[in-house]
């Protein structure tokens, strides 16, 4: 079957989609967007988290055909999405330029914070965590630690022990508050 939807602001179309394919498979294998990760394919790890019509979901559990006509944001589109949300200036990217920052420019604040706080190790959980964390900070700009933990409780990480992830989200929230 054919499936058409918008990904990161661009209309996309996939042909010859098998009816049992997930949105995750279509993104990764048909649309060249492998940023969303395939870690469990049963909704138990959050690595494939995307925003489907604004809402964070596990894209492994969305049948491709269910995405027809919808708007999807993946990690690949997160920076642009953040830029539009903040009204084109990208706060985090500019203030990130300290002596220990990475080389990246044009990142969403939460992406820069993950790099700066050391929240990335193997990085396989990172895309899903970024999408989930970014959405939480959109809803709740000043989260308590318990709020952060609850919002990210659907995203498994096996490398970090989550401490640096907590640091990263706190950092992104603080930078967001400074920029506001």
């Amino acid at each position: 079957m054919r499936v058409s939807f918008t990904v990161n602001g661009r209309p996309q179309q996939a042909d010859d989609v098998w009816e049992g394919e997930s949105l995750l498979y279509v993104l990764r294998e048909r649309l060249g967007l492998p940023g969303s990760k395939n870690a469990c394919e049963q909704g138990e790890c959050g690595s494939c988290t995307v925003r489907l019509d604004g809402v964070p979901v596990c894209s492994c559990l969305v049948a491709a055909g269910q995405a027809e006509g919808s708007e999807v944001i993946t990690v690949e589109g997160l920076a642009e999405y953040a830029r539009q949300r903040s009204g084109d200036a990208l706060p985090g990217a500019a203030d990130g330029a300290g002596p220990h920052t990475g080389e990246g420019a044009g990142l969403a604040p939460v992406q820069q914070a993950f790099i700066d706080a050391g929240a990335v190790q193997c990085g396989f959980c990172t895309p899903g965590l970024l999408v989930a964390a970014d959405e939480m900070l959109e809803r709740n700009p000043d989260p308590s630690d318990a709020d952060i933990r609850e919002a990210l409780s659907g995203n498994l990480c096996r490398c970090t022990g989550y401490e640096k992830i907590m640091d990263a989200v706190r950092l992104a929230a603080a930078r967001q508050a400074e920029g506001a």
Partner: peptide, 15 residues
Amino acid sequence: LRPDGTLKVTGEFAY
């Protein structure tokens, strides 16, 4: 910071 950090947060790092 990790040299692969930016690729990993943008989803471009190829596993």
